[in-house]
Amino acid sequence: MLEIKNLHVSIEEKKIIKGLDLSINKGEVHALMGPNGSGKSTLSYVLSGKDKYEINDGTIDYNGKNLLELDVDERANEGLFLAFQYPMEIPGVQTSFFLKTAINSKRKYLGQSEMDALEFAKLMKSKAEELNISTEMLKRDLNVNYSGGEKKKQEILQMSMLSPKMAILDETDSGLDIDALRIVSEGVNKLRNSDNSFLVITHYQRLLNYIKPDFVHIIADGKIVKSGDYSLALELEEKGYEEISQTA
């Protein structure tokens, strides 16, 4: 699915990712943990193609394609999804309209016809219900005046409607209350299948109780310093980054 080799990235001359390797296969869930400023969000932006990042070295293969050559929207329509750490507000654009536009962009890219209005309404309703998002919410402008947690839920709604092949969740759990955390996790688990993959960025082992990862990676200063299975998250919780990084 995704194969990152020796990735070096800088922004405005500042080196942020310094030789990162990561390989994610179909059907796997990987968790990425690491201290503030270690380059987690940067990695998610580079994967989704945000400009201003300079790729100094390395390759990224995505389903046999050179990911770095694809435009942002091409990557998205090829099934790469980023749930943002800080979702954007878009004033004047109704949330439901945004969802419809996103779905139809993808369908257009895949050479399919637009989704029928009724079919769309049904899909949105059922997915929103699963995530406990009210229909009133969907009539409001996208993310405008949404609470922090509501924004995160909105990201997951978009994800479940677009059913991506490779989803990156950047600190989706931060800001969610206990119930919302459970609901969102259930949403993610529902989506999980043998064909898609997830990269879950988080600071808290608690999320991984709900979304059981196949692998856990620890990133520090732009490199993956340690990888393991779920037990690594527990160990991290106990020892903290400092000690774990030293034992790496």
């Binding site: 998205a76 943002f84 962009s105």
Partner: peptide
């Protein structure tokens, strides 16, 4: 950032 967000959702 708004443009990037929309493009990440598949809009050209």
């Amino acid at each position: 950032d708004q443009l990037f967000y929309c493009q990440q959702r598949g809009l050209n």
